[in-house]
Design a protein around this nucleic acid. Structure first.
Lengths: 310, 310
DNA sequence: TTGAAAGCGCTACCAC
DNA sequence: GTGGTAGCGCTTTCAA
């Protein structure tokens, strides 16, 4: 300690008075560390609810003194390549590679050598760490909620089960597990796109075939909105005539009347978990499954005693 | 041109083969240019529809070879200050300062000396360029849509008119202008928060006072959702008994039945316009008003002939 | 321990 | 015109 304490103080004070701050670009040039992260995503604004993916990343990054670049590729591989190059040119420290719905993705080569966590998607065989919602458990929760209310028969699924939609397949697995254990089963599936319009049409047509569902599991809240509408038009009540449970727990779930029971898709938590992993906190295992909590509301009741009276 | 053409080619080819790309951080250290923008916002994920503000900024930035930092302050002034410092430390070229709803803001001092455009907000007296939706014209459009359908009386407003909410005041001005010119006027306002629950309660209570509105202007689509619910519960039809028009043109407008007429809040276009301004394209005037187009759907019809029959 | 100097990868400038 | 050199603001290394 060769410098006089007094001098030390004066220097520090001067720095403070001049509002000195280290130039992170210059520092980065030497250390190759920029304290920036990038969120590379297919599409985040298009799906309103995926905005929480950005927000969660933002929060977690800021809490650790990192700034976040946000990129959107619109699933355009060429654009994605360009954006990744741009990020690389700026020496981003680490990458979040995200999808707005859970699916398998192809990670661009240029990112393979970077610090990288997959967010709401996975790349099988790549060994890359990924953070995804626990959809199997979510399926179990939805089915269990109906069982708890006394439902055994007439439980229908509304939605589409395309192979690349991981959520659908895993949820069904969870449901069948729990229903099977209770000696019950799904009565069938009403095919519908994951939107209110489609659900209104398809589920309406289904009702008009004089089918009498006692409970309905919708693949998301928007589908449930269409189901509510189809029921309302026909004078059927929720949950008096039909119980409804869905997935996502978006704003809609609270806005619908009666309020919709829904298994939450915790986008924000997915993102914060991914950032923690990315920054080397916590277990570096390969696949992290984030729980999807059930939000029980008024849309589930005991099954109607008889079917005949409709 | 002292270098042999052949040599030139060989160098260029080698650069290409080695996938050479200039280090933008090193370049930035010299030129003080990073080709990065920052979007500093109060809250963007919380309001799902404001995500388009991010997306528009992203698109416009990427199209020009800029990368975008996204920051969210949660209206926490201290956090805002810290984030701005972090951005400054990284030599961001220019700033978008945004709000999720149109309002007057206090721009942090540190940003005053930076290249800056206000997005969906304004700072009166600052002389800073800003991009905002043209709410007065939007109010005119909403009122005109009702006038066109033949409405003159029983036109009620649903929503809250707090002073700091610019949209409300300006829309009302536009409505009164157009209605006044047609010898009509607003019958009154049903106070309600800008959410379905509140609108359902307040507008429901209003109906139960045996008031007979023929048309309703809602401050946003979510309020309209609550109004739809309140009407449905009472056996009233849209647009047969009551016409409805709203603002935002969010997804909800299309999902509601019948589909809701709504004056669009073009978040994406606001953002792209702001980026253009920021990057020195186009007229550097102070306040830019982006048009809000009316999306006419099934929720508006001719007024009910008589009030008595309800 | 500590101060001086080199160097990160690039651009700007200035002699030639 | 154009090639060489200084230097952007920091960290790292090395010699004292």
């Amino acid at each position: 300690m060769r410098i006089a304490e007094d001098t030390r103080r004066r220097v520090l004070r001067a720095a403070h008075e001049l509002r000195y701050r280290p130039d992170l670009m210059a520092r980065g040039l030497r250390t190759r560390v920029t304290r920036t992260l990038a969120l590379v995503t297919d599409s985040v604004a298009s799906e309103a609810y995926a905005g929480e993916l950005v927000y969660g990343s933002l929060l977690a990054a800021a809490a650790r003194g990192y700034l976040l670049f946000v990129c959107e590729t619109g699933e355009d591989v060429e654009l994605e390549g360009q954006l990744v190059e741009e990020l690389l040119d700026r020496h981003v420290d680490a990458y979040l590679y995200a999808s707005y719905f859970t699916r398998e993705v192809e990670v661009p080569d240029a990112l393979r050598s970077q610090r990288l966590v997959l967010l709401n998607c996975r790349a099988p065989g790549s060994g890359l760490p990924s953070v995804v919602p626990d959809e199997v458990a979510a399926g179990r929760s939805a089915a269990a909620a109906l069982l708890d209310a006394g439902h055994r028969d007439g439980i229908w699924l509304v939605g589409e089960t395309e192979p690349q939609v991981i959520a659908a397949a895993e949820r069904v697995r969870g449901m069948e597990e729990v229903l099977g254990a209770a000696g019950a089963r799904l009565a069938g599936t009403v095919p519908s796109a994951w939107w209110p319009e489609s659900a209104f049409e398809q589920f309406g047509a289904f009702l008009d075939e004089r089918r009498h569902p006692r409970a309905v599991i919708c693949f998301n809240d928007r589908v449930a909105m269409g189901v509510y509408q189809a029921l309302a038009v026909r004078g059927l009540r929720v949950p008096g005539d039909v119980s409804v449970v869905a997935f996502d727990d978006s704003d809609l779930a609270v806005w619908l009347r009666p309020a919709l029971s829904s298994v939450a898709l915790p986008h924000r938590e997915l993102a914060t978990t991914a950032v923690e992993l990315l920054l080397g906190e916590g277990d570096p295992g390969t696949e992290h499954r984030v729980p999807m909590p059930l939000r029980l509301r008024e849309s589930i009741g005991p099954p109607r005693a008889s079917w005949r009276s409709w």
